[in-house]
Design a binder for these strands. Structure first.
Lengths: 239, 239
DNA sequence: CCGCTGTTGCGCACACCGTACGCACACTCG
DNA sequence: CGAGTGTGCGTACGGTGTGCGCAACAGCGG
């Protein structure tokens, strides 16, 4: 142990570390965790690294957050807070719900790490941002003459669809970004193997050999197709 | 270090460890991992513990599996293999797809840990069981007169809905089982806090204070409602 | 002004993790 | 009887989450 690293040996050597505000706050921790997750992904989030980014020791964070799981719940709520819910001024309920679903997809894909976390945080709907989101989405459905009880189920249906697609897409985008290649390069490179692997399955084989589309656009179109079908189905319940 | 644990000091002391079959195989490893996950959940799966269950050292597994992520991909494919796809004999395509979706939900909830993993395994659809599943589901839609291209999108839509609900439900069931209480106890205990927390949100508040249903049945009904709407929406695309 | 009390940050330590590396063995083939 | 090959395992490294107890201060009553 080097001698100069010994604990404070004299008064003027000792660092003065008193700040006006408490250096750490739950909000700062959550914000920094979000930045870290966005830039380096889920497996890069450790309490030590997060502490270091905040000029704090790892275990200091535990004064503001019970444990890592709780931190993740807070971050997830923060992400849900970014979803935009339009108002119904001059829009049909369908247009508004569509815009909201597209915003949700965009937010979830922008923070693709969230797919690995959604399956772990139960009780997500207790977060303040999630509650605000759900309340506002309920108004959209009720503006479309759904009964309160049915609006609730309609909301759950749309969100389940969005989460399902986002989970699948996010997993794909994550492995993609780990590979370093672009999406188009990846699918092009994989195509021969895919065509070979689907040989025993005629229908999959036909799809694999069909005219390839531009990859990213194709994902968006697929999402929109399913969303329209879901909304078609909900519409049949209206008078 | 106790003296009797020293390495083989003479010929007849040394254990003879040759088996007829290789002790480990990829199939055995995957099967045991599945058992471990089902009985103790995702955070209990470690290569060391899995090795111990197979009477093997932790690192021996790496002869058969590239790394833990690859192991998880194999296990996920195994789970997908448990989903039952009925044939269309004497059933409408809707009935068959409904049965398949219900089976998928049941399988995913039976292995609730899968929700924490689905967002990490990209390229899930390359597994043999997933391919078989998708091929068979395509036949259901094509039996219902969907075009091949549209059957593909319809399949993706239904699966996205199933995965979305299963992710949410599985997260709930996991936190539930960690708490030790029964589902009904949990919701009953949470009700007052929920009613309080929803005070600022009139629509959520109304739903929270409404006549409570039996919890598990309510989840199943909600799933069925959304599934019916999705299928309604798909049906509008048929002549 | 002094001392007390409660809050905050931090260093240390523990148990555990995934896995790279290289050795020891038993079997197969020449 | 070698040589080669595949398989299991022991050791080790650099991480992880987090419990625990101490040190430094803020705000306070006296």
């Amino acid at each position: 142990m080097p001698v100069e690293e010994q604990p404070a040996m004299s008064v003027w050597t000792r660092p003065q570390r008193r700040r006006d505000q408490p250096a750490l706050s739950r909000a700062q921790i959550v914000a920094e965790a979000l930045r870290l997750l966005d830039s380096e992904g889920i497996e890069a989030l450790s309490m030590r690294k997060l502490g270091a980014r905040l000029d704090a020791g790892a275990t200091s964070l535990y004064r503001h957050v019970a444990n890592k799981d709780e931190l993740l719940e807070l971050v997830v709520d923060e992400v849900y807070g970014q979803i935009e819910v339009p108002d119904t001024w001059g829009r049909t309920w369908r247009q508004a719900v569509t815009a909201c679903a597209e915003s949700a997809r965009a937010v979830l894909l922008r923070h693709a790490w969230i797919a690995s976390v959604l399956g772990q945080v139960g009780l997500a709907y207790l977060g303040p941002n999630v509650m605000r989101l759900n309340e506002r989405m309920l108004t959209l459905f009720e503006a479309g003459k759904f009964s309160p009880a049915e609006a609730d189920r309609a909301l759950a249906t749309v969100m389940a669809y969005v989460i399902g697609t986002a989970t699948t897409e996010a997993a794909w985008l994550t492995t993609l970004s780990r590979s370093g290649r672009s999406e188009q390069e990846w699918v092009d490179g994989l195509r021969p193997a895919l065509i070979e692997a689907t040989k025993p399955y005629p229908r999959l084989h036909a799809l694999a050999t069909a005219e390839p589309e531009e990859a990213e656009r194709s994902r968006g179109d697929g999402f929109r197709y399913g969303l329209d079908r879901v909304l078609d189905g909900l519409q049949t319940r209206l008078p």
